[in-house]
């Protein structure tokens, strides 16, 4: 029962703490407003104050009025409706996405995208190797042609030898 309450309060408590931190930060803005005029801190402070008030209200509601019976019902409901979870895949997928953003400026869009497409489809439990390979190659080429040749988006080329590789592929595709 107490654990359930803590679980429910947790997100509001986190939001409350973050709001307090940002409220303090807003109080430190340096500006020169005319006397009597609202400064640039007013609007964010107003919003953060409202956020804190809503969080406090919700925490108080859970602490004071939350009934055990309702909780049991909710928990029971969740148990029957929750589909199978794939937390491992989710973590790998998220890490891969972060890695893509980190490596795209080093490896360049072409190589990094090819690897990302290849691995993300495998992580997504797709097992037809040739389809994955074909999709990764053709997808990368298609996106490079569309966005670099037609839409003129300057996608990252990478650094050092990876840049040389990107330039070579672009030359082969007749771009630049």
């Amino acid at each position: 029962m107490a654990m359930e309450k803590i679980k429910r309060i947790f997100p509001y408590a986190v939001v409350l703490l973050i709001s307090v931190y940002f409220y303090v930060l807003a109080g430190r803005f340096g500006f020169g407003a005319k006397a009597g005029n609202l400064g640039p801190d007013f609007w964010p402070k107003l919003l953060l104050g409202l956020t804190m008030a809503v969080c406090l209200y919700e925490i108080a509601k859970i602490m004071l009025f939350h009934r055990g019976k309702a909780l049991e019902n909710d928990a029971g409901k969740e148990k029957t409706e929750t589909p199978k979870r794939y937390t491992g895949l989710l973590i790998i997928g998220t890490l891969m996405t972060i890695a893509y953003v980190y490596f795209v400026s080093i490896l360049g869009f072409i190589l990094c995208t090819f690897l990302y497409l290849l691995l993300f489809m495998i992580v997504g439990r797709y097992r037809k190797v040739w389809v994955i390979a074909a999709n990764s190659v053709l997808g990368t080429v298609l996106f490079v042609v569309i966005f670099m040749k037609a839409v003129y988006v300057s996608l990252p080329l990478g650094q050092g030898m990876f840049q040389q590789f990107s330039l070579l592929v672009l030359k082969m595709l007749g771009i630049r």
Binding site: Y100, V101, T113, L117, F120, V131, F143, L155
Partner: peptide, 15 residues
């Protein structure tokens, strides 16, 4: 296959 579609959605998100 949803995994293929989703992979391309991610790519479009990046771009």
């Amino acid at each position: 296959p949803e995994s293929v579609v989703s992979t391309f959605i991610m790519l479009l998100c990046f771009i």
